[in-house]
């Protein structure tokens, strides 16, 4: 279990992480989502005691990270996959990490085997592709067989087979009762991997709930009067947002009610269809106000 309470990090004038409070439960994969620059990595670095919080606290299984006696046996982390010495072999990279926490030497061979790098173990890590580096990073995280795992963008650079491999791996680790926190900026990937989602934007918590709660039913309406009708729907208590040309995505009102309202107002409808918003759309909507480096619209 990872517990954050009022966690805040300020870099000069910039609030990188702003009063974050949430809990990551064991036995589930928790997706940690946010646009680039939302503060995901900074948050994870604070969990690991690498960055000092400006205020607030974070504990892992009830203890501050720096108080863990042999941290790699408690928490496994993948932050930057390519943070390895280019001339040092993958095996030696894992060996020194194992030695630092008095882990048995055989764990090195076990995790190399687990991530499928046994044949490349003697090669300098600088010769690895991004996908292989990600696998090495995951091997390092699993070295101490820890009950808590933190992975920052682990699917970056993996091919489709690698993505599926990591998805299965993470789900298996959670099924064993471990706490798994995985950050991503890809909602579609998290839709397939995570049980729960924590969404942040500009360092602030935007949403935290089970995956199902993020997808909600809505109604797609296509009409020539979409601007006026949209306003009318809002007055009636629905929420709308523009879709493609002449389309409205309506939530908070059923399709029959939208149809009745259109008839009462004399509005011509070309299309009226119930639909489920995808997780991707929900994410875009949630974070549209908090995109750090968004393209001009």
């Amino acid at each position: 279990m990872i517990q954050l309470s009022g966690l805040t990090k300020r870099h000069g004038d910039v609030l990188a992480v702003d009063d974050l409070t949430f809990t990551v439960r064991p036995g589930a994969v928790t997706g940690f989502l946010g646009p680039n620059g939302a503060g995901k990595t900074t948050t994870m670095r604070m969990v690991l005691g690498l960055d000092r919080p400006t205020s607030g606290t974070v504990t892992v299984n009830g203890r501050a990270y720096r108080d863990l006696p042999q941290p790699l046996r408690q928490v496994g982390a993948l932050l930057e996959a390519q943070a390895v010495h280019p001339r040092r072999s993958a095996r030696n990279h894992l060996r020194y990490l194992a030695q630092s926490n008095s882990l048995p030497e055989r764990r090195v061979a076990e995790v190399l085997d687990l991530v499928g790098l046994t044949d490349a173990a003697g090669r300098g890590a600088g010769t690895f592709s991004l996908g292989m580096s990600q696998r090495l990073g995951i091997a390092a995280a699993l070295l101490g067989d820890p009950p808590v795992l933190l992975l920052d963008e682990p699917v970056n650079g993996l091919d489709p087979e690698g993505v599926r491999w990591i998805r299965t791996l993470l789900r298996g680790l959670a099924a064993e009762g471990r706490t798994v926190l995985v950050s991503s900026h890809l909602m579609s990937e998290m839709a397939l991997t995570a049980d729960r989602l924590v969404v942040i934007g500009k360092g602030r918590l935007i949403a935290e709930s089970d995956l199902d709660a993020f997808t909600e039913s809505g109604v797609l309406v296509r009409t020539p009067d979409h601007v006026a009708f949209g306003r009318r729907l809002e007055l009636a208590g629905a929420r709308t947002r523009p879709g493609n040309e002449g389309e409205l995505l309506v939530t908070g009102m059923s399709a029959p009610d939208v149809g009745r309202l259109a008839a009462a107002e004399g509005v011509t409808l070309f299309e009226l269809a119930p639909r489920r918003t995808t997780l991707e759309e929900a994410f875009m909507e949630l974070t549209q106000d908090s995109v750090e480096f968004g393209a001009a619209r």
Binding site: G49, P71, L72, A83, V84, P86, H93, L97
Partner: peptide
């Protein structure tokens, strides 16, 4: 090489 983060952790 950036291994300082892993070493501190």
């Amino acid at each position: 090489s950036g291994t300082i983060a892993a070493s501190v952790a």
